[in-house]
């Protein structure tokens, strides 16, 4: 379960990309969810993935986070860490964190406790049993509460939050994990117009420090944040480029509008 050659926490990005996916194929009962897909994500970039339903966006995230094992291909984190040798918790601890399409926060726990669970720290069973928050960790949770605008709701159970607030809480949980790569699946579903704007600001402010991969259907939102867009279709990369380039690509138009 250990694909780490450098010290934990060290990712070799000296050649630029932080994620390398090469010739990745996944099939479910004969259906090719990913078909020889190759994709590189640079360190610090904000990348948007778009594509019609069934293009393989969620499967791609499943492969990167260890939920789904590809039939063929290779997936590397930096140049040295082979993600296919690691399971989900190991990948998460190495610094690849994921927000799910359906907001999945822990309804029974308070907002604060949700963030506390996500906190980057020793996640062994015994360490967790005796865990106590220190000052710096408390400050970090406060800081994230502020960033996601849920300071007042900190002691409320997460179950009572609105859909948009749950999305924010989940983004907050990502931040607590101090990730190097954030995979964000449909961050703005169920958000009001204002919330969408704040989400865009937040994601933009985070790039550079971390790499962010956003999957989103809302083209207006994608246009507002993305410099670089990758279009997936039938399990492979159809094209890549700026939003304008991509939107004017006849193949993309055909895929979205049909023949």
């Amino acid at each position: 379960m250990n694909g780490i050659a450098l010290k934990p926490g060290q990712v070799d990005v000296s050649h630029g990309p932080i994620l390398y996916l090469e010739d990745v194929s996944v099939s479910f009962d004969g259906f090719k969810a990913l078909n020889n897909l190759s994709l590189y994500i640079d360190a610090g970039e904000l990348r948007c993935l778009i594509g019609p339903n069934g293009a393989g966006k969620t499967t791609l995230m499943d492969v990167i986070t260890g939920k789904t094992r590809p039939d063929t291909g290779s997936v590397f984190f930096g140049q040295t860490i082979d993600l296919l040798q690691m399971d989900e918790p190991a990948i998460a601890q190495a610094g690849i964190c994921r927000k799910f399409q359906k907001p999945s926060v822990f309804d029974m726990l308070s907002v604060f406790e949700n963030l506390e669970l996500a906190l980057a720290t020793d996640k062994g069973a015994w360490a967790t049993l005796f865990a106590k928050l220190n000052g710096a960790q408390r400050d970090r949770i406060e800081q994230v509460l502020e960033t996601i605008g849920l300071v007042e709701l900190r002691s409320q159970p997460a179950g009572i939050l609105s859909h948009g607030q749950k999305q924010w809480l989940e983004i907050g949980m990502l931040l607590m994990q101090e990730p190097k790569v954030m995979l964000v699946d449909e961050p703005i579903a169920g958000m009001t117009h204002q919330e969408v704007e704040r989400t865009a600001e937040l994601l933009l402010s985070l790039q550079g420090e971390r790499s962010i991969v956003v999957v989103e259907h809302d083209m207006e939102f994608v246009r507002s944040i993305a410099k670089h867009v990758t279009v997936l279709h039938e399990g492979s990369v159809l094209t890549e480029g700026s939003m304008d380039e991509v939107q004017n690509d006849p193949r993309v138009i055909q895929v979205y509008l049909g023949d």
Binding site: P89, C97, F100, D107, L117, K123, A125, T128, A131
Partner: peptide
Amino acid sequence: SKLGRVVTAIRDQEMRVRFLGYRVEMFKLW
């Protein structure tokens, strides 16, 4: 304790807990 909260979280959303970096099987075992 925090372990208790992880355990309840596993009950409600096991997959999600794994993606937070916890080895779910170890907590269940404990």
